[in-house]
């Protein structure tokens, strides 16, 4: 199972480091990162393997959302199935 983590907001030092740390702490293995900064606006999409997650996925979603709140960012983790279902037959 994979999760798509999206991070958007004002650019600052350590965004990737902090998000990656939460992933590492909770056992989510990062598979891919797409990231861009457009006039101080930071946008990142991360694909992570969540098979070995140490906590329930819903809790992982909350943890990342809380990190986003602390850093003034919008962080959402969503199960990949919603994208697969919508875009692939």
């Amino acid at each position: 199972m994979k999760a798509v983590i999206t991070v958007t907001g004002k650019d600052s030092v350590g965004i990737i480091a902090n998000v990656s740390r939460v992933c590492a702490d909770q056992g989510a293995n990062i598979l891919d990162i797409t990231q861009s900064v457009l006039s101080e606006y930071f946008a990142m999409i991360m694909l992570a393997d969540i098979d070995r997650l140490k906590i329930p996925f819903a809790e992982f979603v909350d943890t990342l959302a809380a990190l986003g709140k602390d850093m003034g960012l919008d962080i959402h983790a969503m199960h990949e199935d919603i994208f697969n279902t919508m875009h692939h037959i």
């Binding site: 798509v4 919603i82 994208f83 697969n84 875009h87």
Partner: peptide
């Protein structure tokens, strides 16, 4: 495989 445009479309 997921692509960025699909992900962004769903999120939007």
């Amino acid at each position: 495989m997921l692509n960025t445009a699909d992900i962004l479309e769903t999120i939007k």
